[in-house]
């Protein structure tokens, strides 16, 4: 098991390196931000680009980039969005907003999604099941930013229950901050809830018709006992890995949601860096999202082994 994990981590690092190289070269191949002709300031920008090595061959630049990260954990300075500021500092300042928004979304989505899935499965082929399944399909089909605008209009403007935007400040655990995050959290959660509902319903429906469930009932267990003790446990093989997968999905979905609700997070930072062609911020953000995605993949794979004893990781037999 340990060897398997080590192998996966080594492979993850190698993959991360390759993706980083590709991102680095591709983004540097984009034309740099245009400079106005006949503007005297242009010469200064050109000189700074030259001094920062932007005119050197790509592989040389990549070598310098890696050297600075490994020797000084220096991801460079922003030369556009946050002129002259350390991009790692900027990134770390913005990370909590993204992490909390996504965590709250996951925490909200898991119980509701699984609960609705269980209810729909238990009420299979009744109006409850049809209603939940229909709403689930509708919600899954609608992008999260549409919910964002609806929530902003109805809950913030019409009803006045929530602020329009996330509160300023870094008091992440305060009640006010939590409330101000709710519109964004809800926007992110609708799709996730629907996803969990659909997955849980499908798995549970199948498990509930299994022979071992019939055996459990014939042993004298109530339906609730059988469902909780046997059916749900079997469903976990699919649902738990889906939680990790959804986390990654939400992280990417939150790029747009962060912008709409003015959440000063790394997702918004990523979009801005791409638009402004701020290379160093783009690279750090890209590496972050890539690393999170790869790490989640490993966690999902390893989690199978814990959840389902029949699965043996790294076994040659």
């Amino acid at each position: 098991m340990g060897k398997y994990v080590a192998q996966r981590i080594a492979l993850m690092l190698f993959t991360l390196l390759i993706i980083t190289l590709i991102c680095f070269v591709l983004v540097r191949m984009l034309p740099p931000a245009e400079l106005p002709l006949n503007d005297p300031h242009t010469a200064v920008i050109e000189a700074r680009r030259e001094a920062q090595g932007y005119n050197k061959p790509y592989l040389v630049q990549f070598g310098i980039f890696l050297r600075n990260i490994f020797t000084k954990f220096d991801w460079g300075l922003s030369d556009k969005l946050y002129f002259g500021q350390n991009v790692a500092d900027i990134f770390l300042q913005k990370l909590p907003a993204t992490v909390f928004t996504n965590l709250y979304s996951i925490i909200l989505s898991i119980p509701i999604g699984i609960g609705l899935g269980i209810w729909a499965a238990l009420k299979k082929n009744t109006w409850v099941d049809y209603f939940i399944s229909t709403v689930t399909m509708v919600v899954i089909s609608v992008p999260s930013f549409v919910f964002a605008f609806i929530i902003q209009y109805v809950l913030s403007y019409k009803l006045g229950w929530f602020p329009f935007l996330m509160k300023a400040g870094t008091d992440w655990l305060s009640w006010d901050m939590f409330v101000s995050m709710l519109p964004a959290v809800m926007s992110l959660s609708f799709g996730v809830i629907a996803g969990f509902t659909r997955t849980t319903r499908a798995e549970l429906t199948e498990v509930l018709t299994s022979e071992f469930m019939l055996l459990a009932r014939t042993k004298g267990l109530t339906k609730a006992q059988a469902t909780i003790r046997h059916a749900l446990k079997n469903c976990a093989v699919v649902i738990v890995p889906a939680i990790f997968g959804e986390f990654i999905g939400i992280m990417s979905g939150s790029l747009v949601i962060e912008k709409i609700f003015a959440i000063p997070g790394v997702g918004n930072l990523y979009l801005n860096a791409i638009n402004a062609r701020d290379y160093n911020i783009f690279m750090l953000d890209s590496c972050f999202y890539t690393a999170v995605g790869l790490a989640a993949g490993i966690v999902v794979d390893i989690s199978y082994g814990f959840i389902d004893p029949r699965i043996r990781m790294g076994s040659k037999k």
Partner: peptide, 10 residues
């Protein structure tokens, strides 16, 4: 939560 919530001031 702990890692992100170190600074709870404005």
């Amino acid at each position: 939560l702990a890692a992100c919530g170190g600074n709870t001031t404005t």
